[in-house]
């Protein structure tokens, strides 16, 4: 009897002994600077997707380890650690790589020394949006002089409905051209890109390719998978479209420009976009900070990464003189181009 009773209990004890696993995942001291550094470096090493593509434009990641390990060894407090780790991430030259703490967010300056090429005060004067513009979802829109439609879309985090799109495009149905101003739009939801673009085509169109990091090696990327935009339900716009861009067009906005440029009758005017062609995903550190980085790159239809931006079809900067007079050089260039080309 006793022996029999021992069977399940011994099983249970045996299983309990197996339970003492996962020791390799236990963090002994969450605040240990070196442990946080090691985990951040390793996470980036295994998950960041542009090491191969950027090999000539960024430092070797193993060299970065040596350089920053020495700095972390001399680190005296938590804030110092944050800025050292933040600087390490900036070596990747990627606006999608950020370290988040409760006191700051590290970020790479995508604009650099490029001109702003955007002034909201100029946009808000009566020549353009003025005070009497219409709003539908995240869109602000107005009909400019010469029957040119103007849509200001400042963030892909500002959502909109199909009905919003229907009303906006219906309003511009008889316009002689449409300007979509996405300058200073830093991105947001990638799903909204297709939602807009689907209103500018009647066909299924190949607009690029997507990949993802398929393993821990720097070159472990999946085969490029084609990405299509299909004709959407609702009202479509059939005329010419000018997309206005500057260096702060980033992430989903970069994807939007890349997608729209494939469609017929669409032109990009202004400055190069800021890039950001890798969809970021998140991870975290033992001390509670979290990090995001590009892990799933997008390519254009020619299978080129647009991580460093998309060159415009017509390159034009804001003139300081025009700006002083309340004139937006880039909008005016777009308006001239649309008026010249819409009948052709």
């Amino acid at each position: 009897m006793k022996k029999i009773l021992l069977y399940p209990f011994s099983c249970f004890l045996f299983l309990f002994s197996i339970v003492s696993c996962d020791k390799d995942l236990e963090v002994e001291n969450e605040e240990n600077y070196m442990e946080n550094f090691e985990m951040l470096w390793k996470t980036v090493d295994e998950k960041y997707c542009f090491f191969d593509y950027k090999k000539d434009s960024i430092k070797n990641w193993d060299d970065v380890y040596v350089e920053y390990k020495a700095k972390v060894q001399d680190c005296r407090n938590k804030m110092d650690l944050f800025y050292i780790l933040g600087d390490m991430l900036k070596e990747l030259k990627d606006g999608h790589v950020n370290l988040y703490s409760s006191f700051d967010i590290s970020r790479y300056d995508i604009q650099g020394h490029a001109p702003d090429n955007f002034n909201i005060k100029v946009i808000k004067n009566d020549r353009y949006l003025g005070r009497d513009y219409k709003i539908a979802g995240g869109f602000q829109y107005v009909m400019l002089e010469n029957n040119i439609g103007y849509i200001r879309y400042s963030s892909f985090s500002s959502t909109f409905s199909d009905a919003n799109l229907d009303y906006v495009l219906f309003y511009f149905a008889n316009a002689d051209g449409l300007i979509i101003d996405v300058r200073d739009n830093g991105g947001g939801y990638a799903s909204l890109v297709e939602k807009i673009a689907s209103r500018f085509t009647d066909n299924k169109v190949l607009v690029g390719y997507s990949q993802y990091k398929s393993g821990t090696g720097h070159s472990d990327l999946s085969d490029p998978e084609p990405v299509y935009v299909e004709s959407g339900d609702g009202i479509h716009y059939k005329g010419l479209v000018a997309i206005l861009t500057n260096r702060n067009c980033y992430s989903a906005t970069n994807d939007f420009v890349q997608t729209m440029k494939v469609l017929p009758g669409v032109i990009q005017i202004g400055d190069r976009t800021g890039g950001g062609a890798g969809m970021p995903m998140s991870s975290e550190l033992p001390n509670g900070w979290y990090v995001r980085m590009s892990m799933a790159p997008y390519m254009d239809v020619d299978k080129h990464y647009t991580e460093f931006g998309i060159e415009p079809d017509i390159r034009v900067d804001m003139s300081a003189e025009d700006e002083k007079d309340g004139v937006d050089t880039i909008i005016e260039t777009a308006r001239d181009w649309l008026m010249t080309h819409w009948r052709n």
């Binding site: 993802y212 398929s214 393993g215 821990t216 472990d220 999946s222 998978e225 995903m281 799933a296």
Partner: peptide
Amino acid sequence: LRDHFSMPFVGVMFSPNYAQTYYE
């Protein structure tokens, strides 16, 4: 008194690829 021990030996599971998003 009952003891029930079980263990899977073959199956199929859903898993994204290494850094593939659910959006993709």
